[in-house]
Amino acid sequence: MDALWMPALLAVAAFAAGVLNAIAGGGSFLTFPALVFAGVPPIVANATSALAVSPGYLGSTLGFKAELARLPARRLRNETLIAAIGGMAGALLLLVTPAHVFRGIVPWLLLFATALFVFGPWLAGRKPILDGKAHPMERWRPVGLMAVAIYGGYFNGGLGILLMALYTVTGERHLHTTNALKNLNSLVLSLLSVITFAVAGAIAWGPAILMMVAATAGGYAGAHWSKRLPIAWVRGVVIATGLVMSALFFWRG
């Protein structure tokens, strides 16, 4: 790709990713492929993409600070610790994955993330038991959180949907609390995975800084546009993007 076009491609992809993440999620469907098409090796592209979209998690977490303040401190400590360990473990798993193996599974990861986005509303809409008793699946929440955090550290696509689904099916009764925990754990595991990538030298810093700025601007714009754009239309764009990117990566082998 022409070097003159590369920064423009990455900036546009990151801006659009910030918009999508603010409205419906799915921004990594744009940032990761853009980096790969710009010539960044897939593992480095995945690490750089994770850093590029990470600022949005902080803003989202701060937006739910009241909901988090109402939760027991012990629960928050335990769950964020699990998310941190899982995020670091996923990042380390990515770093020891041979490049040719990761290239081979990328299309499947993109397809899996797209499927999560398609079925996300159904998964997140599962109703917990509301009879005042402990949910029978609640004891499995730490195990599920660790698995999701490892996935998120390894490949960020569909992370928010997985966390929403996990908390819903394990008995979290309030949507705002579910959203708050999703944002907090996304922030923590992404932070630890990005630190791991940075220490290992797996981040392309030039593209990362450019894309972080563009993604932040896109998130700001998306927060305003979200009140005007039909959510069904935006979801359709994200799903189509995920399918097209999956097809392209399958075609590239």
Results as ranks from 00 to 15, higher is better:
Gly222Pro: 09
Val96Arg: 00
Thr114Lys: 15
Phe15Asp: 09
Pro42Gly: 09
Leu243Tyr: 12
Gly86Cys: 13
Ala24Pro: 06
Tyr154Lys: 04
Thr216Arg: 09
Arg252Ala: 07
Met6Ile: 06
Pro207Trp: 03
Ile209Pro: 05
Pro230Ala: 02
Leu130Asn: 04
Gly132Pro: 09
Ser60Pro: 09
Gly86Pro: 12
Leu130Cys: 09
Pro55Ala: 00
Ser54Arg: 03
Leu30Tyr: 05
Tyr151Val: 07
Met1Arg: 00
Gly152Trp: 12
Ser49Asp: 07
Gly242Ala: 15
Asp2Pro: 10
Leu163Glu: 12
Leu68Arg: 03
Gly90Thr: 10
Arg103Ala: 04
Trp108Tyr: 14
Ala221Trp: 02
Thr61Val: 07
Val148Lys: 13
Arg235Glu: 05
Asn21Arg: 11
Gly86Asp: 09
Gly206Val: 03
Ala17Tyr: 05
Thr177His: 03
Leu229Gln: 00
Leu9Glu: 08
Leu51Trp: 03
Val118Asp: 10
Gly253Asp: 12
Thr48Asn: 06
Phe117Gln: 12
Ala198Thr: 01
Val188Trp: 10
Pro107Cys: 14
Leu159Gly: 10
Ala232Asp: 06
Thr170Trp: 00
Ser60Cys: 06
Arg252Trp: 07
Val53Met: 07
Ala240Arg: 10
Gly218Arg: 08
Leu92Tyr: 05
Trp140Arg: 05
Gly153Ile: 06
Ser186Thr: 01
Ala17Phe: 12
Gly120Gln: 11
Ser49Val: 15
Ala202Ile: 03
Ala38Gln: 06
Met146Asn: 00
Met1Lys: 00
Gly59Trp: 08
Glu67Gly: 02
Ser186Asn: 09
Val143Ile: 11
Ala149Gly: 08
Asn46Glu: 08
Val148Ile: 14
Gly253Thr: 07
Leu30Gly: 06
Gly132Ala: 10
Glu67Ala: 04
Leu116Ala: 15
Val12Met: 11
Trp140Gln: 11
Arg70Lys: 08
Ala47Arg: 04
Arg228Leu: 11
Leu58Gln: 00
Leu111Phe: 14
Ile239Phe: 15
Gly18Asp: 08
Ala180Gln: 01
Tyr151Ile: 12
Ala214Lys: 06
Thr170Phe: 08
Phe197Asn: 01
Phe112His: 13
Asn185Leu: 10
Ala115Arg: 10
Ala134Leu: 15
Ser246Asn: 12
Lys227Pro: 14
Gly26Tyr: 12
Val118Gly: 06
Gly171Trp: 00
Gly158Arg: 15
Leu95Asp: 02
Thr170Val: 04
Ala221Pro: 13
Glu67Tyr: 03
Thr31His: 14
Leu130Met: 12
Val106Gln: 10
Gly144Asn: 04
Pro136Arg: 02
